[in-house]
């Protein structure tokens, strides 16, 4: 399917949950209602004509006024790609986990939690993954100040 067809299908199916679509962008995307991520992801994963069985990338972006989580999805069967974006306020961002659809989301979501402090509800093992467990702050946020010391060691 072309990105235009995917965007049209999503709008037809989910209507107001699709906040904005840019199927002509270099990396075609749709911004969706964060609360609907699981349902929309489920549709993209299971719908026969879409079959997005490969979660290529899941990552956060801090836009200073909001936090965005980007899901780059790909279909091994139909060889097409589409990107979903969830925009959330910077204070206490939270999303439902998509671990049940793509196993790899487990680690990707842990990384997004570690770097941006995004909480994934229903995640089986939401711990820091790259930073130590007792690390403070979320390094990839734009207002992050790195600490001078960690456990009395200079950073």
């Amino acid at each position: 399917m072309t990105p235009q067809e995917i965007a049209a299908l999503l709008t037809e199916k989910f209507g107001s949950w699709i906040l904005e679509s840019k199927p002509d962008a270099m990396n075609p995307w749709s911004a969706i209602e964060p609360g609907a991520i699981l349902e929309i992801a489920q549709f993209l994963r299971t719908e026969e004509s879409l079959s997005m069985d490969h979660l290529e990338l899941l990552g956060g972006v801090d836009y200073k006024d909001r936090i965005e989580v980007v899901y780059v999805l790909y279909s091994m069967k139909h060889r097409h790609r589409y990107t979903l974006k969830c925009r959330m306020p910077r204070e206490a961002p939270a999303l439902q986990t998509v671990e049940s659809l793509w196993s790899v989301a487990n680690w990707h979501e842990r990384e997004a939690y570690d770097m941006f402090g995004i909480v994934f509800e229903g995640h089986s093992d939401l711990r820091r993954i790259l930073c130590p467990d007792d690390w403070e702050g979320y390094p990839l946020r734009k207002d992050y100040k790195s600490p001078k010391t960690y456990r009395d060691m200079p950073v």
């Binding site: 069985d53 490969h54 979660l55 290529e56 091994m76 793509w102 196993s103 790899v104």
Partner: peptide
């Protein structure tokens, strides 16, 4: 193959 694709 199924597990491999699911784990990306």
């Amino acid at each position: 193959p199924e597990v491999a694709i699911s784990y990306g």
